[in-house]
């Protein structure tokens, strides 16, 4: 009885296993293979050594993503907290509004941002009409960070909101009872208890930010390159597949390591 149950379990898991092997494991192995071979399929460290040419791009990507993630947190956390404080019905409406832009394709949203921020774009026409002069936005790092924040903000708000809205009301009352004002309740109880939401939010914003290429291409106006652009460029040319794979691999490791560190933090916070 138990054995057939186990077999059934394995059988139902089969499609997922096949899927995972085909589309997750196999590509990863390809990345590994390309990283350590040259164009002729011979083992080499060449590609790893070639990475130092891209060190500055790495650094720039990391710093822009960290800034974007931090801004998302600064906006997203209070937003999530405020939404969770409303009545259930209003909460639903606000969450829907928050998610509404996500119904439009990311690429299209990025294009429309271009249309707004361009030198002859929507924003500058308004400024011009008001005789306030013009601002040059497209091609600046600020525009790229803005793009990341705009595109990925919902990913910060949602996990945090989910956690905060499920917090036991009694805990907040207990904190007030024991002498906390509103700020202290937030700082001493809500924040630590929502740390797992914060970690998810940071992950979900940081990972797409660091690997993005279209935001930097469109809003960066080609004046600088992020690591996502570099990878994309390597893969547009058959002869540079191997370097592209190496960069991808290093980035994956980088992301994994930073996630591991963050999860460690969250666990400690929750365990007290």
């Amino acid at each position: 009885m138990e054995k057939s149950g186990k077999n059934l379990g394995r059988l139902t898991a089969a499609p997922h296993v096949v899927w995972a092997v085909l589309f997750i494991l196999a590509p990863l192995l390809f990345v590994l293979y390309y990283t350590f071979t040259d164009a002729y399929g011979v083992f080499t460290w060449e590609n790893i050594f070639a990475l130092k040419e891209h060190a500055n791009t790495f650094l720039l990507s990391v710093s822009l993503s960290v800034i974007a993630t931090f801004i998302c947190f600064l906006i997203g956390y209070p937003l999530a907290y405020i939404i969770a404080g409303y009545k259930e019905k209003s909460q639903k409406i606000m969450i829907t509004l928050l998610m509404l832009p996500m119904w439009t394709n990311l690429l299209i949203r990025t294009y429309s941002m271009m249309a707004i921020m361009d030198d002859g774009g929507f924003l500058n026409s308004i400024l011009g009409a008001l005789n306030l002069g013009k601002v040059h936005l497209i091609g600046t790092k600020g525009a790229v960070i803005f793009g990341m924040v705009y595109d990925f903000l919902p990913y910060m708000v949602l996990p945090i909101y989910t956690i905060i809205s499920k917090l036991d009301e009694n805990l907040l009352e207990a904190a007030r009872d024991l002498g906390c004002n509103t700020v202290q309740v937030l700082w001493k109880v809500v924040l630590p208890l929502s740390s797992s939401g914060i970690v998810s939010g940071i992950t979900m914003v940081f990972v797409p930010s660091i690997s993005t290429f279209y935001i930097s291409q469109k809003l960066g106006g080609g004046t600088f390159e992020l690591i996502g652009d570099t990878i994309e460029r390597q893969f547009q040319n058959v002869s540079t597949y191997n370097v592209g794979a190496a960069i991808s691999l290093v980035m994956m490791i980088l992301v994994l390591v930073s996630l591991a560190i963050m999860n460690r933090f969250a666990d400690e916070e929750e365990a007290g």
């Binding site: 036991d168 009694n170 805990l171 009352e173 207990a174 904190a175 007030r176 009872d177 024991l178 002498g179 906390c180 004002n181 202290q184 109880v189 630590p192 208890l193 740390s195 916070e269 929750e270 365990a271 007290g272």
Partner: peptide
């Protein structure tokens, strides 16, 4: 939080963290 009155809540409401 400014009252010299404290509460023992029905379900204790201990801080899990």
């Amino acid at each position: 939080h400014k009252r010299h009155i404290n509460t023992v809540f029905q379900k204790y409401a201990l801080f899990p963290h």
